[in-house]
Design a protein around this nucleic acid. Structure first.
Lengths: 246, 246
DNA sequence: GTTCGAGATATGTGATCACAAATAGCGAAC
DNA sequence: GTTCGCTATTTGTGATCACATATCTCGAAC
């Protein structure tokens, strides 16, 4: 609107500020979603700081954010640990995911374009490749990338943010599910149906396929959660000491 | 499980730890939800610390949590401000609320008990009283308390947490809606229908009533958001300086 | 062998300081 | 009168320190 009398502004590299706290935050968040932390695992601020090569301060701030997202918790005695979901909490996450991700999937189907098709297909292939190999962390990353890219098409960043918060919650649980080949195959079947529904711009079908995917994942987890819980509580103390951190 | 040979454990006052960062966090969160901050309002860590009578450190940690919840944001140049929702973001929040709060309301209806009836009714009366007077902050507080108590009956704390995150987002918007008597009356009408549905243990009716309540609130806000946005951007700079903080 | 308890260590919390970058204030030049 | 540019102030960030308390270690007592 306003005529500039100075130079016509250089190509501008547009260096986005990236504080150390932000880097630590993203690193920790990705690690949690990829299942690199065990549920209930105990950590220390100083230990994480040393492992990440920073002072405790950025870690403190990053952990506060992740605490708000429910990834970590500070006990009554102010001890830091990875959040461990109970069976009913896992069902809550499942229901919330069905509601929100179903909404996003349906909306995405109606806003898909040709360029989206190729990108989604590409991510699907990457997911398939990670499933063929049995790399669980790689599969989790590819899985979230696949879903995220779809939901971005819905153009509802606020809702996507809420959905990602739920992903952070279930990330640690996946270390408990063994690299089960049958589970991965069933999961890929649901993913195939998601892809087909999106290609046909079929909103309800996309919602149904996403719902199935979420329900299947929840079923796989429910077979592991809460049952060994009782066994563990008498056999071995649940809280493990801090081990690797990133 | 384990027999204690010591004293049979005293009445336990159970002093829950309450760090200064937690107090600041709750204080700020409540203030945001009650609409005591304006959208886009600029703040400073030191200013908040002084106003709250603490050092900047607890404020920093509390703000990180609220940043994760979307209440505050740090600009590219690391400046702190209250998040200002656009019209489309407000619609996203509306849709997500309909999905999640509808779920909680329906589940709450099927789990209501007699003691819940009296508590909900009591909160409804308090809401009515706040509506008769035109105390907007008081109405907002009573409104969230009413909804929160209902959703607590659904026994899904994870979902309730996500819902409260959305409340934090829309809190500041309400300072823009004038204490409109017609809006309050319509809103109380929806609340009355929520109450009736819960009393009859009618899940679908509760979901429908909650949906109407959310849609009406969104409509009231959409009449104020984004339209004066254009007017403001040319008339006066949108970013206000820091004023009162709590 | 188990349990209790005192000393030592570990750990989150809050405060303070230093620094770099951004913003605001203000004067000079055209 | 407006705009440019320099200076002073503000402000978020990161580091370090001190402290209270929780946790751990390990030995003594029954």
């Amino acid at each position: 609107m306003q005529v500039r009398k100075t130079k016509p502004l250089p190509p501008l590299p547009s260096v986005a500020r990236d504080s150390m706290a932000d880097q630590v935050y993203r690193h920790l968040r990705d690690s949690v979603m990829a299942g690199r932390f065990a549920p209930g695992q105990r950590l220390t601020i100083r230990g994480l700081a040393e492992a990440l090569g920073s002072s405790p301060m950025p870690v403190r701030e990053a952990l506060r954010r992740l605490q708000a997202e429910g990834a970590f918790e500070f006990s009554d005695t102010a001890r830091l640990s990875v959040v461990e979901l109970s069976g009913s909490q896992l069902r809550d996450v499942r229901d919330a995911r069905v509601a929100l991700e179903g909404l996003l999937a349906e909306r995405a189907a109606s806003r898909m374009t040709g360029v989206d098709d190729s990108e989604i297909t590409q991510l699907y292939d990457r997911l398939q490749a990670a499933a063929d190999a049995v790399d669980v962390p790689g599969y989790l990353s590819a899985n979230f990338a696949f879903h995220r890219r779809i939901y971005e098409i819905a153009q509802a960043p606020i809702i996507l943010g809420a959905v990602e918060n739920f992903w952070v919650l279930i990330g640690p649980c996946f270390v408990l599910v063994a690299p089960d080949a049958t589970h991965l195959r069933r999961s890929m079947d649901a993913h195939r149906r998601i892809l087909d529904a999106l290609m046909h711009r079929d909103g309800p079908a996309a919602r149904a396929a996403v719902t199935d995917d979420i329900m299947q994942a929840a079923n796989s987890l429910s077979r592991v959660i809460d049952k060994p819980e009782k066994a563990r509580s008498v056999a071995a103390p649940n809280r493990r000491r801090e081990d690797r951190s990133a």
